Simulated scan of single mutants.
Amino acid sequence: MRLRIDLAYDGTQFHGWARQADQRTVQGEVEAAIAKVLRLDSSDVCLTVAGRTDAGVHASGQVCHIDVDDDVLNRAIGHMHDVSGTQALFRRIRRIVPDDITIYSVEEAVHGFDARFSASDRVYVYRVADELAHADPRLRNMVLRIDDTLDVEAMNEAVSSTIGLHDFGSFALPNPGGTTIREVKFARWQRVPDMNLTPMNIYHGGADSLDTQAVGADPRTDESAYEIEFAESGLLTFTIIADAFARNMVRSLVGASIAVGRGKKTVQWFADKVAHPQREGLTGPAPACGLTLERVNYPEDGLLEERANAIRAVRSLD
């Protein structure tokens, strides 16, 4: 049986997704948890992931899969009653994994599903606190702090040149036997608007209001007393969607964007890097802390196998 596992993690203390000898990785932790529940050797458990994340990179919508024999999967049931092996595995591993990993679900995958090759696109977001944003210390592990005011308009003009099918060799490294050709579907910088966590209308009656008997009457009439600022208000975010990403691609695009936003590089310089794939070393990848894999999208169930077969082919610009 092929199982689909959806999960999230804070990448701060991990040396990336991929299993490494003598290093703490997300794959290593999750595989160890599965091996413990199913009474297997860790070497007998192998996860296939939608997108390998680098050291320090986070994920809120990561997807992976694993193939397990039915008799082995049923070992997870133990003394549980009226649950399947899949449900039992989910209940047990979500309690075993460390606190910086959350297992959202474990489900039987539909026919043709491959966490990596069936994906239609992946969505990454990079978060930045420039001089116009509050550097909330609670978000320090997922936001890059910059002591400049960035020119968002210039940054968006720059990243507009990434839309479409391009060789991103100026910004990325190919995997062995692979290429740096990718199709970017969306790329945009924007500032998160100031938002309040507590809706103002909850103290004014109406269908969406809270029961004052339940929350307690409050004699204050100053509405500002209830203004609780959303933690991400004011941050700059770079959202990019592509069919896939090469190694260091997003962080290098962010680093180049920030150079433009600071006025140190021009929009034309950025466009030339896209048009002429060459690693000249003038800009490196932005720090990993600001990057999160937000979600992985898949086509309709009936198209999963077709998508997987198509994406395995070596890419070209033709």
Rank of each mutant, 00 (worst) to 15 (best):
T162Q: 05
I77F: 01
A217T: 00
G61R: 00
V314L: 13
R19V: 07
R312M: 15
Q20C: 13
A133G: 09
M142W: 00
L236V: 12
V192N: 01
D10A: 13
V314Q: 08
A35S: 15
G177N: 09
I66P: 09
A275D: 03
G234M: 00
V267S: 02
P287K: 02
S118V: 06
A21H: 12
L40K: 02
G78P: 05
V250P: 04
M142Y: 01
L197S: 15
T149Q: 12
T198Q: 06
Q190N: 04
P176S: 02
Y226A: 00
H111V: 08
G178N: 11
R122M: 12
A21V: 12
G234P: 08
D69S: 05
A310R: 14
A18C: 04
G16H: 03
P287W: 02
V68G: 11
R140F: 15
A308T: 11
I258K: 01
N175G: 15
D6K: 01
L291N: 04
T283W: 12
E108V: 10
V123Y: 05
P287V: 07
M155K: 02
R116F: 11
R307H: 09
N74Y: 14
R24D: 15
K36Y: 13
T86M: 11
A259Y: 14
Q27P: 06
G169N: 02
E294N: 09
L165F: 11
H276F: 07
L210T: 15
L293G: 00
